[in-house]
Amino acid sequence: MKLHYIWAALVGLSLLTATLTAANPSRAGLVLGVLVLAGLKSRLILRHYLDLSQSPVWARGFDLVLAFVLMAFAGLALAA
């Protein structure tokens, strides 16, 4: 059962987010780093918790929309 690897990866990515935030990086580094990590976590949840890995078309569709949304987040956050 690989599910526990997914869980470990999610916890690991969360810790990475915390470390990155605590390290006080540049604004751009924080925004991009945190959003990329969030994107990776979302992808794991969608594919392995919600089993989208069984339907590659939907998985890709979600990835695409997620990527656009995260880019919009980054764009707005960096514009401020």
Binding site: T17, T21, L30, V31, V34, L35, L37, A38, K41, S42, I45, L46, Y49, L50, V69, F73, A77
Partner: peptide
């Protein structure tokens, strides 16, 4: 609920 939280935290708490 999990997924929403993962996307919400960076925007509300971190950025």
């Amino acid at each position: 609920v999990d997924l929403v939280w993962v996307l919400l935290v960076p925007v509300v708490y971190l950025l």
